[in-house]
Amino acid sequence: MEKVKLKLLYSDLRPELEMIEKELEVAVGSNSLLLNEASLHLLQAGGKRIRPVFVLLAGKFGNYRADVMKQVAVPLELIHMASLVHDDVIDDSEMRRGQTTVKAQWNNSVAMYTGDFILARALEYITVIEDSKIHDILSTTMIEVCRGEIIQIEDKYKLDQTIRDYLRRIKRKTALLISSSCELGATVSGTDAETAARLRRFGYFIGMSFQITDDILDFTSSDEELGKPAGSDFIQGNITLPVLLARQDPKIYSHLRNAVGKEMSDGERMEIVKMIRNSSALQQAKAISEQYLDKALKELDHLPKGPANKTMRKIAMFIGKRKF
């Protein structure tokens, strides 16, 4: 239901998004039956397509051409998809968006090569773009996303990491792709440098808010709403902001210390979830998310008014306060 509400906010972009969806299907197509099935399994699991949406909306601030927007929207979404497949292998995730992951449906090897294949398709796709600046932005984005994945592995099960460590990680894990989506949409549509910079910052701030909200929902939502077990991040060793804030309570810290990295029953998992829910950590995390959201909205205040600005504002508000 929440995803439907979000899509209504950018329903005027439906023709372009349908075009991008068809292009994604073509892009992940392969002569290998196994690769084809695995790639389509991931694609058909759906998603909010936030990154293509922001490419399109940012393009509205310049000389908007849907066919040109598509050239950067598709590879960005492919990069995102590839990172999800690899993430699920690293985290040993069985479920994503209520469906089995590629690694669960097949195995780790198939998942890793599927992710590599989708990433290669993204590289192939951007060869049609002649502007070297676009290539610079995309290549830097891919490098930083990979660095973020490595940092996530290094930080696994580290209960004593700092909040700065966490923010550095989610910048690369989530915020950078959304930031690049906005910057690329602005760049390919020929906006001025200041507009592109403001859109890039907007994307960064909303990306940070988006991920923090995701990490809050991992504790506040039910298994059914998440499409995976609540508290999955902690079980998989990903120490998120709610946990970092909750550990300030010595009793909670002691409990978390004894649980981190160990096999847990559903009852033990829900005990951790309940402990975080009953602490002040979720409200503190929400306040930090809202600070990023406010910064994102302030960037929009300095951009030309119009339908694109209005829709971006609505999406930002929805993302920062969503319940899915």
Rank of each mutant, 00 (worst) to 15 (best):
I216G: 02
S32K: 08
S93I: 12
G62I: 05
S189V: 10
A296K: 10
G306P: 02
D116Y: 10
H302T: 15
A175N: 06
R97V: 04
A122C: 10
R169G: 08
M270F: 02
E94A: 14
V102G: 01
L8V: 08
L84F: 07
L76Y: 01
G190L: 14
V273D: 06
D131Q: 13
T101F: 00
I150Y: 14
F210E: 04
A27P: 06
R313V: 09
I143T: 14
S189T: 12
A120H: 08
L33M: 10
D155L: 15
L9D: 04
R168Q: 13
P307W: 05
L40V: 04
V273C: 00
L167R: 09
E21K: 06
K173M: 14
R168T: 14
Q211C: 10
L9M: 11
A287T: 15
H255G: 06
D116C: 10
E268K: 03
C182K: 08
R51F: 11
S179W: 06
E299W: 01
H41M: 09
G47P: 07
R313N: 09
G320Q: 10
E290W: 11
F54R: 05
Q44S: 12
Y166E: 02
D67N: 14
L40N: 05
I206G: 01
I143V: 15
L159P: 10
R147P: 01
V28N: 00
Q291L: 11
Q71K: 14
D92V: 13
S232A: 12
F210T: 00
F54N: 03
A186V: 12
L184S: 06
P307H: 08
Q152E: 14
A281Y: 02
S279C: 09
G98P: 12
E194K: 15
G320S: 05
V55L: 07
I216F: 00
M112T: 15
L84Y: 09
K7Y: 12
L40W: 02
D214P: 08
T195H: 06
P229Y: 08
V68M: 13
S109L: 13
G231H: 09
L245T: 06
D91V: 07
L177F: 06
D67R: 14
E130I: 13
S222Q: 08
D223A: 03
I163G: 07
K5H: 11
A287Q: 13
K274D: 14
R97K: 12
E18Q: 15
I118N: 00
L199I: 06
R147H: 12
L24V: 05
F202P: 01
T100P: 10
P229E: 03
E268T: 05
D12C: 13
L9G: 04
L34R: 04
G98C: 11
I126Q: 09
R65L: 01
T100S: 12
V28H: 00
I143F: 02
M1E: 09
Q284Y: 01
S179H: 00
Y166G: 01
G261H: 08
I143H: 05
S222W: 10
I276A: 05
V68K: 02
E2W: 08
A175K: 07
D87V: 02
L13M: 13
R322Q: 09
F318P: 05
S222P: 08
I235K: 05
L138D: 00
K60H: 09
A246D: 03
A38H: 03
Y10P: 01
